[in-house]
Nucleic acid binder design. Structure first.
Lengths: 229, 229
DNA sequence: CGGTGGATTGACGGTTGTCAACTTGCGTGG
DNA sequence: CCACGCAAGTTGACAACCGTCAATCCACCG
């Protein structure tokens, strides 16, 4: 197994604060795992059996309600933590948006280890606090933003992370999500998402060279579409 | 100052896991504080300066956006924890819905104390994890539920906590929130909230003996209005 | 008894969801 | 290499829901 010291997310995952010898111990508990696009790692409603770190790829936290509609509660990316420690059931599924690699632990083994290693627990606490802040910011968006604002916010959000950040040229990037994924995330329908993208294209704010690609021609105009958020 | 051993939320706040002698030490750091209805304890955007526990009353976490609309992100009640430890800025204000009593600590003193007392940090972690689950559940509601469903869910939610829980008789309780507060919480307008309550009354599912009072006549029917959630 | 603020009701319009048709892109197999 | 088929995305028509604005009602208080 790969040593934690070689880990792709060595400096950013919650393990980063552990001293070398504890890291080796944790390493023996972990297991690297591939999750193919569309596969679920955790199921909504199941007892929480595993936790872990994302090494590569992107996954969504999602719930599906009785009426058949899905809602994505958040997206997790490399160095993010997955799962619900300390013996609760998982309120949501974790599903791969793209082929992903994760480093997983059995929940019970992780719980025990965390209790014995305060730096890890502290790292998890800080991360959970920022996750909570982020979730609440997202709530604000779902509650109060129009469809146009949501799409603009989302595009800028992705642009910040995925663009090949050259100095000024127009930002270009590939969406890691399908229209359906975007709709589930933004609390809209695919038709509404599609219409908003068309509108941005017609207004000359973006272009869409291919299905999944976006070019931002006028970032200021796009930011104006977010409704000062 | 009141000793923590006499505290109203002794068994439920995050301090409950501390041994007696640590509790005394924490006690010396804390300060009991009254917050009048409408007063803010923490301001959105400010550096996080204080944290604490709710002893009595009800407060809301709220953000106001540039366009002047407020959104309530959650409600905190006795034994809940308030504030953002570990040196971040507060993303939201904390405002009293009713006259409240809180037990506050300076954030920096609390941070230091928590680092030295693992049981407290662990309690805070568990609470933050459940807060995160709750926030995500609320997101689902804001994203996908209709106005009627939101009001029904809210009423049942409050009923569970505030009713004088006699065996079967119709549930009766006082709302701790104004219509505006409810609208801010549910991501609606006061008019829409009002109309939904009128509809429930016309359908014989509830009665409203006074402005703030609600009687649930037909709990099954009300649950049917939530859209299986 | 009037005033004030919260709550209700009504009329109306805009935004978004729904349903359906259509187009586009892409991979597969002949 | 082309043709086909399928899934993803786009577009249009329409309706429902909810927000907006305005008028009114009601409880509470001086």
């Amino acid at each position: 197994m790969n040593a934690c010291t070689q880990c792709a997310v060595r400096d950013k995952a919650i393990c980063h604060s552990l001293p070398e010898e504890s890291l080796e111990e944790l390493n023996r508990l972990g297991r690297h795992q591939i999750v193919k696009k569309g596969q679920a790692l955790v199921w909504q409603g199941d007892e929480s059996l595993l936790v872990g770190n994302v090494l590569e790829g992107a996954l969504k936290l999602s719930v599906s309600s009785a009426d058949g509609r899905d809602q994505t509660l958040g997206i997790v990316l490399p160095s993010d933590f997955i799962g619900r420690p300390f013996g609760a059931t998982s309120m949501h599924s974790v599903i791969a948006l793209t082929d992903s690699r994760v480093c997983t632990f059995s929940r019970s083994a992780f719980d025990t280890f965390a209790q014995d290693h305060q730096p890890l627990e502290h790292g998890l606490l800080e991360r959970t606090l920022t996750d909570l802040d982020r979730a609440r910011q997202w709530m604000m968006m779902l509650a109060r933003k129009s469809a146009g604002e949501r799409v603009a916010i989302f595009l800028l959000h992705i642009a910040k992370r995925h663009s090949s950040d050259k100095s000024d040229g127009p930002l270009r990037f590939e969406l890691p999500l399908s229209r359906q994924d975007m709709a589930d995330l933004l609390g809209l329908t695919i038709e509404t998402v599609s219409r908003q993208i068309t509108r941005l294209r017609d207004d000359g704010i973006i272009t869409t060279p291919s299905r999944r690609a976006i070019v931002i021609l006028d970032q200021d105009a796009l930011e104006a579409c977010t409704g000062e958020c």
